[in-house]
């Protein structure tokens, strides 16, 4: 999965976990969990769905890397063999 595909998947997964979320208003380097007021269950639903789509285990200690859209995209691309655009 390259970075662009990863980003697309991530956006779809967030919109699934948080129906009605306006992702266009969230800068890609900002903490979307805070911005979208996701609670711990929302975030877990996001992680679960992302894990399902990507096949990645997404262990809890890696959650900090998943805080922003950029971070998520780099992480997913990096762990699925896709090229990272830039070092995170």
């Amino acid at each position: 999965m390259n970075r662009e595909e990863a980003l697309e998947t991530i956006r779809a997964v967030i919109e699934e976990a948080v129906p009605g979320a306006d992702l266009s208003a969230v800068p890609s380097d900002e903490n979307f969990r805070e911005r979208l007021e996701m609670d711990s269950l929302d975030f877990l639903a996001f992680v679960e769905a992302l894990s399902g789509r990507t096949g990645l285990a997404l262990p809890e200690q890696d959650y900090p890397a998943l805080a922003t859209l950029d971070g998520c995209a780099d992480y997913v691309a990096g762990h699925t063999g896709g090229a990272q655009s830039e070092p995170a």
């Binding site: 711990s40 269950l41 877990l44 992680v47 679960e48 894990s51 997404l58 262990p59 809890e60 200690q61």
Partner: peptide
Amino acid sequence: MRRQNSTRPVGERLVPA
């Protein structure tokens, strides 16, 4: 909880709540 979650599949992870 952290130790539990490290061995659990994502669908069975716990949250503090």
